[in-house]
Write a protein that binds this DNA or RNA. Structure first.
Lengths: 211, 211
DNA sequence: CCTACCGATCGGTAGG
DNA sequence: CCTACCGATCGGTAGG
């Protein structure tokens, strides 16, 4: 069943999706015309409507099927977990590597937020939810080493800490980036870990909403 | 000089900027037409070009003059600095308050990144740079309480930690947000502080690129 | 009768 | 700052 050659219609649909994805990442949704999509996909203006009812339907398909989580979740599962510190460092390393390979993976979220006001995000979460189990389990295995933070909050801050690296990277002009050196990612990871792992005693070790 | 009534041309220009700003925030740049802007501003299709040479010039003006830093920097300077912890908690509180009042302030950065690939960001940094002195001084005053982190990196992680709260907020569907409770911001602040303040000893206290 | 698609063009609107 | 338009292009659809 796997690796069977695509049926003709499926191959065409995949070409349309590829073309639309790359154009949306370069120019945004409204900045990309149907003409550009059909041209890059090698189909005719009319032909595309045999596969998608509208331009927005194409976006929805791109958003759900090319979303970063498709690349990120398998990657996070592959990381072999030693200590928590090793896991987080290694996971961050891989995530940044993957997103540098595909520079524009974050753009997909920004386009959804800017040009659709997040209208399709609930749909995305429904798709992702069932795939999160293994990560939740992994988190549970290390929960003893962590400060008492409610799991949803912990997941959110982990995702957020990673965004924080990536978005500040995207926002800096090259001249400012030069000031950072190239160990910035390690610093982000280290600060985050220092922030969430139990240090034994001292200030800041208060209970954090273990609701 | 201040509070003098606007000259006629300036008032018109301000109306165009207001109209464009609100429309860009609602629909993005390419999703907004010049027709919509002139209608909301109450000027004619041709008239707008007496004030701005092109649609992109309007964006540049909006980007440089309505950028969040215009609201955020004064706000950060006003916070009365007791301990570092108090300062960061209080600053975070105010930032989130301000951005909730103006829900779309982050959109401006996303639009710039998505629809212009950050082409105007260097211009923005040139404007901001001179206004950063007071904040750098404030940072210096507390540097003894912090882990050894290079100042540019520290500034970047502070900005990033704040983005991380805000962007995960924007990305969550309401159903997921409900799981977080309403103390999420305090948790973000606490994790960040725990991550950057010197704890005395222990793991993670290694030197972080004090280049 | 199906699917996947063609060349041509629809009514409206884009930035200028 | 207006009215009146331009060349071109927009997303989507016609019959075959």
């Amino acid at each position: 069943m796997v690796d069977e050659p695509l049926r003709k219609g499926e191959a065409t649909q995949a070409r349309i999706l590829d073309a639309a994805y790359s154009l949306f990442m370069e120019q945004g949704y409204h900045g990309t015309s149907m003409r550009q999509i059909v041209e890059r996909a090698g189909v005719t203006t009319g032909g595309v409507y045999n596969h998608f009812a509208s331009k927005e339907e194409i976006w929805v398909a791109v958003f759900l099927e090319r979303h970063p989580y498709r690349a990120i979740l398998p990657l996070l599962r592959e990381v072999d977990s030693g200590t928590l510190e090793e896991y987080v460092h290694s996971a961050a390393q891989r995530l940044v590597g993957e997103l540098n390979k595909q520079q524009d993976l974050l753009h997909i979220m920004f386009i959804e937020l800017v040009e659709f006001n997040g209208a399709h995000i609930p749909q995305l979460f429904e798709r992702i939810a069932p795939e999160l189990r293994p990560l939740v389990d992994l988190l549970d295995a290390h929960v003893g080493e962590l400060r008492p933070i409610a799991p949803p909050l912990l997941a959110r801050t982990f995702l957020g800490f990673f965004f924080s690296y990536y978005i500040t990277e995207a926002m800096m002009p090259p001249a400012v980036r030069a000031l950072m050196g190239d160990g910035a990612l390690d610093a982000f990871v280290d600060i985050y870990l220092h922030g969430v792992v139990a240090g034994g005693e001292g200030r800041g070790a208060k209970d954090l909403f273990t609701t």
